[in-house]
C-alpha cells in the first residue's frame, strides 16, 4: 500500500514537472524570428490597472514585456494624452472628447474603475518620465484620430507633438507609429522617413496601403488574419502586429500564426510561454 502511495506521488511529480516544461515554438517572422510581447495599454483590458494609466504601463514593462502599446490623443492645446476612447464619459469621472478639451480641463480626470482607486488620466510625458531607460523597450503608439476635422494644420501639429516626444526621450528606434489615415503617413514620412509606421487596417487594404506608402507593417485585429496572410505579408517585407488578443487561447493562436508582435490583454501568460 505504501509503495502504491509512493508511485502515485512520483507520477504526480512527473506530471507537475511535465506541465511546467516550456513549449518551443518554431517562429519564423520578420522580427528576428521572435515575437514581440506588447502589453495592450500596459497590462491589458481586464486588469486592475486601467489601460494607458502610468501604473499599467510601468507594471507591464517591469514584468518583462518587450514593450507596450499606448493609445494617443491630442488635447485642444496640443498635449499628447494616453487615452483609448473618444469620449471620457463612462470610463472616467469627466465628460467630453479629449480633442475638444484643454489639458487643464483634463488634468484632474480619474478612471472610474476599480472602486476607490482613482488612477489618473496622464499626459504621455508623465509616463516616459517614469521609465528609467525608455530605449530598452518597444512602443506602439496607437494614434487615435477620430472624426474630428483632420486639416493639414492638425496633422502637422499632431505629428510635431509626436516627434517632440520621440526626440525628448531618444526613442526613434523604439517607436512604431500606428495610424489609420494616410494624411498622417504622408506628413510623417516627409518629416522623418526613418520612423517605423504601421497602418491600422484590415488585411487587404492594409497590404495595399503598406506597399503604396512603404510602411513597416500592419496592425490588425487578430481575428481578421490567418497564418497564410501573415506569411504573405512577410513575403512582401511587411510586419504584422496583432491586437484583440484577450485570452490565453488567442495568445497561442497568434504565436502559431507567426505574427511579429502580439498586443495582448493576457500579458503575464504571454511572457510566461515566450520568455
Amino acid at each position: 500500500m505504501r509503495h502504491v502511495k509512493h508511485i502515485a506521488l512520483f507520477i504526480l511529480l512527473l506530471l507537475v514537472i511535465g506541465s511546467c516544461k516550456k513549449e518551443n515554438y518554431d517562429i519564423n517572422n520578420l522580427n528576428n524570428n521572435k515575437i514581440g510581447i506588447i502589453g495592450h495599454g500596459g497590462m491589458g483590458e481586464g486588469n486592475n490597472y486601467p489601460i494607458n494609466s502610468q501604473e499599467s504601463i510601468l507594471k507591464c514593462l517591469n514584468l518583462g514585456a518587450t514593450g507596450c502599446e499606448i493609445d494617443i490623443q491630442m488635447t485642444k492645446d496640443c498635449v499628447l494624452v494616453a487615452f483609448h476612447d473618444e469620449q471620457l464619459n463612462g470610463y472616467t469621472n469627466n465628460t467630453g472628447r479629449v480633442y475638444d478639451l484643454t489639458w487643464n480641463e483634463i488634468r484632474n480626470t480619474t478612471y472610474s474603475g476599480p472602486l476607490y482607486s482613482k488612477y489618473k488620466v496622464v499626459p504621455l510625458v508623465a509616463i516616459f518620465d517614469e521609465i528609467d531607460t525608455p530605449q530598452q523597450y518597444t512602443y506602439f503608439f496607437d494614434c487615435k484620430n477620430f472624426d474630428q476635422d483632420i486639416s493639414a494644420v492638425y496633422v502637422n501639429t499632431f505629428n510635431n507633438a509626436l516627434l517632440s516626444l520621440i526626440n525628448q526621450y531618444s526613442i526613434s528606434n523604439n517607436v512604431n507609429l500606428e495610424f489609420k489615415k494616410t494624411e498622417f503617413f504622408n506628413d510623417m514620412q516627409q518629416k522623418r522617413p526613418d520612423l517605423k509606421l504601421f497602418v491600422n487596417s484590415d488585411f487587404n487594404q492594409g497590404i495595399e496601403i503598406a506597399e503604396q506608402w512603404g510602411l513597416t507593417g500592419i496592425s490588425i485585429n487578430s481575428k481578421n488574419i490567418t497564418f497564410d496572410q501573415v506569411s504573405a505579408a512577410h513575403e512582401h517585407g511587411i510586419m504584422i502586429a496583432s491586437w484583440g488578443v484577450d485570452s490565453k487561447e488567442k495568445n497561442l493562436e497568434n504565436i502559431k500564426k507567426n505574427v511579429d508582435f502580439i498586443q495582448t490583454d493576457r500579458l503575464k501568460h504571454l511572457i510566461k510561454i515566450l520568455k
Partner: peptide, 18 residues
C-alpha cells in the same frame, strides 16, 4: 467611511477617504 491606500506612481495621490 472607507479608508484606502492605493499604491500609485504619484505618491501623494494614494490615500483617500470615501
Amino acid at each position: 467611511p472607507t479608508f484606502s491606500r492605493i499604491v500609485k506612481v504619484q505618491e501623494n495621490q494614494g490615500e483617500w477617504l470615501d
